Amino acid sequence: MQSGKMLVADHQGTYMIKLIGDVRLTLCNTIDDYIEQMFSADNFAGVTIDLAETLGIDSTSLGLLAKLAIQAKQRGFDRPTILSPNPDITRLLQSMGFAKVFNIYSDEITNAEDLKELPVRCGSETQVRNKVLEAHKVLMGLNEQNRADFHDLVCALETPKASQ
């Protein structure tokens, strides 16, 4: 499966994020850094996430997207939009409770020539662990099924290692 990559663009404060391939933990720092960059922009107006070429997406990446939607709401912006023409990805989004915090459409974007690929930003083991923990806590807040599904993982991540 094609490893994941993230393409982005913005036009006068309206941002586009396109996730391509198999979107996994390796992109968590890249995704989170870009979210922070978007919200720190004075002209932020909204964001659309294009999942048309997403082959798979893990729970950490989903949690970071949910974080984006929650931050937008807290700051008084409209719900972000997700474009998801793949029924399997859309089903996953629905099961995670994304319809509560995103507008989800099956449309595809035909003109994405202004997108540029972001380099993958690696992080330390601690940074990645903290992002995984944060992402799963956000997912747990979306619905009861997520709370049950991710409870053990969150507990394990919150428990310090005996060797530390």
Rank of each mutant, 00 (worst) to 15 (best):
G13A: 12
V154K: 11
T14A: 11
L83C: 14
T30Y: 07
A162P: 14
F39M: 05
F102A: 04
K18C: 08
Q127Y: 00
V23G: 02
L157Y: 09
F102R: 12
I109K: 15
S84M: 01
Q71I: 14
T60P: 02
K161C: 06
N130P: 01
I104D: 05
L93M: 09
G76S: 02
F102G: 08
A148V: 13
Q94C: 00
G13K: 11
D50G: 09
E134L: 11
V132P: 01
L118Q: 11
L7S: 00
R79V: 05
T30L: 08
T126H: 04
R75S: 12
D78V: 01
P87G: 08
A148Q: 14
I31V: 11
R24C: 06
G56I: 00
I49A: 03
G56S: 15
G13P: 11
R91E: 14
G63N: 06
T60S: 13
A69S: 15
L139M: 06
Y34K: 05
P85K: 04
E113I: 04
L55S: 12
V47E: 09
L142R: 09
I35K: 12
A9R: 02
T126G: 00
F102Y: 15
R75E: 14
I89G: 05
L153Q: 08
K116L: 04
F77H: 14
I49L: 11
D78C: 05
I82W: 06
R79C: 10
K73Q: 13
N103Y: 07
P119H: 10
L118I: 03
D22I: 00
D42S: 15
T81V: 14
D107K: 13
H11I: 07
L25D: 03
L118E: 05
